[in-house]
């Protein structure tokens, strides 16, 4: 998927330039009882903004071509258009703040399976041969059970990278937040936390912990009936 590759590339070169990975990724999903909901993905590169400002003026860094702001903007628009044309998705919005280097994607969905389909299609375009994007969310409205599955072999992919490229993950973080309109009965992932109002689950981890398997993304959340 060229669009995501460009974002990744920007993260890669921005971070490897000064031998440190400084980005935060947030995955926020809000789910209603009937299975509709909204999703927001945020990539925050603000900690590397000074480097990225310099890098965007260059053509190549560490052997990677640097896309222009216009190219990144166009990729975001293309991505928005593609998602808008997918079944069950609405209010698709992409935003790139080049001042703070924060990219945001949000949309609404009518069924969780539509999110999976959208992500799977993205995976196909990314030539994701390992089917990492296949069915990462499951929700059973009868048992009120929500499942987050990780299909990516992060450690394997990480080991394939050069040492310089691995550095982008050294100080990167990942946060997932799942919100419901019912109280949460239990969570399976011991590192996830339940909010004070009992209706949200958060998992916060360093990228390295995820890659090395010290923290799992997988979680099974059971809601009160």
């Amino acid at each position: 998927m060229p669009e995501l590759k460009k974002y990744f590339l920007l993260i890669l070169i921005g971070s490897s330039f000064f031998l440190q990975g400084c980005f935060d990724m947030i995955e926020q999903l809000t789910l209603q009882d009937n299975g509709t909901g909204s999703m927001q993905l945020v990539v925050n590169l603000s900690r590397s903004r000074t480097q990225l400002n310099s890098i965007l003026k260059m053509k190549k860094v560490n052997g990677h071509r640097v896309p222009s702001k216009a190219e990144i903007q166009k990729s975001a628009s293309d991505l928005k258009e593609k998602l808008e044309n997918m079944d069950g998705l609405s209010d698709v919005n992409t935003q790139i703040d080049f001042n703070n280097f924060i990219a945001t994607l949000d949309f609404k969905f009518s069924r969780i399976s539509h999110v999976n389909a959208a992500l799977q299609q993205l995976g196909a375009k990314l030539k994701d041969q390992n089917q990492g994007f296949r069915e990462i969310y499951r929700y059973d409205p009868v048992s009120f059970s929500f499942l987050r599955v990780n299909n990516f072999a992060l450690g394997v992919e990480y080991r394939k990278m050069s040492l310089a490229d691995r550095e982008i993950f050294s100080d990167a973080t990942y946060t997932s937040i799942y919100r419901f309109n019912r109280n949460i009965l239990s969570v399976q992932n011991p590192k996830s936390k339940i909010s004070a109002n009992g209706r949200a689950v958060m998992l916060k981890s360093s990228a390295i912990d995820l890659i090395k398997g010290r923290t799992k993304i997988d979680n099974q959340i059971t809601l009160q009936k």
Binding site: D24, V42, S46, R47, R49, N100, I177, N197, A200, M202
Partner: peptide, 13 residues
């Protein structure tokens, strides 16, 4: 010293 943006979470995330 340079500025940057991070996110802070309240008790309800």
């Amino acid at each position: 010293q340079v500025k940057y943006t991070r996110y802070e979470y309240d008790s309800n995330f």
